[in-house]
């Protein structure tokens, strides 16, 4: 028996909106520690890892570890029917091939339940090695989304270079070139507006902008985004999910032939 009750149902709505266009079908893994997912996009260039810890749920009952295969587009369609303030409960009986999403309005005067068929998805989990990052960038998530959107109107790949001056996002295309430089700025009113660069050493990597733009669909989840870079390995773009966990996007770099 599985019964997960999330009072801040809007978090789950936002999570699905941020991954449904990147990944089609995925297995959600439920265990005592929490509700998680790890899946690659169809081209195996990007990987998303989601964790919602059990403590973040108002009620978390997971009698045994189970993995539920879902079509994320269909799941997103059902979650769209939940109000932003609704409590969302996810239920599945042992051995059942369906999952039920229950939406309760805050005043409990409206209760809806949507039942979705589960799928068999064979996907092995990848081992993600802990890495020492050469540069860690923490910046307002809206700012990162704006930069990716603006640059993708000029070119389709971005070179992200971190030096002690700051971080530079560069692109070039048929109509010309664009460079955006963000400097460290910690003298701000609110901490979430700061741009922090922890950079033990300079690094420069090239990525496809369309994936980064896809990752920024997670912007509503967090005011800040953490971008961890190291030479020759995937970048990690992480959005924290309010005291519950995180959604991490890994993107493989483009390497000079």
């Amino acid at each position: 028996m599985l019964e997960l009750r999330l009072v801040q149902g809007s978090l789950l709505k936002k999570v699905l909106e941020s991954i449904k266009d990147l990944v089609n079908d995925a297995n959600f893994d439920c265990s005592a520690t929490g509700f998680s997912l790890q899946a690659m996009d169809s081209s195996h260039v990007a990987l998303v890892a989601l964790l919602l810890r059990s403590e973040g749920f108002e009620h978390y009952r997971c009698d045994r570890n189970i993995s539920m295969g879902m079509n994320l587009g269909n799941m997103a369609k059902m979650l769209k029917c939940a109000g932003n303030d609704d409590i969302i409960t996810l239920k599945a009986d042992d051995g059942s091939d369906t999952v039920t999403f229950m939406f309760e309005s805050p005043t409990q005067d409206k209760i809806a339940d949507f039942e979705m068929r589960l799928m068999d998805i064979d996907s092995e989990h990848l081992g993600i090695p802990e890495a020492e990052y050469h540069a860690i960038l923490i910046m307002p998530s809206a700012e990162f989304a704006r930069i990716c959107k603006d640059l993708s109107s000029i070119g389709d790949t971005v070179v992200i270079s971190v030096t002690k001056e700051g971080v530079k996002f560069s692109t070039r295309g048929d109509i010309g070139t664009a460079n955006v430089v963000c400097r460290q700025n910690t003298t701000v009113d609110k901490p979430e507006e700061a741009t922090v660069i922890e950079m033990p050493e300079p690094v420069s990597l090239t990525f496809a902008l369309r994936y980064l733009n896809s990752f920024t669909k997670a912007t509503p989840l967090s005011n800040t985004v953490t971008i961890s870079l190291s030479s020759e390995i995937p970048v990690v773009v992480e959005y924290k999910i309010a005291e519950m966990g995180y959604i991490r996007f890994y993107l493989a770099p483009k390497i000079e032939e």
Binding site: M40, H44, L126, G127, T206, Y250, K254
Partner: peptide, 14 residues
């Protein structure tokens, strides 16, 4: 030009 790598080049199946 630069060649797009896949994530599986870096992360191995468990």
């Amino acid at each position: 030009g630069s060649k797009q790598c896949t994530i599986t080049k870096f992360f191995s199946k468990k």
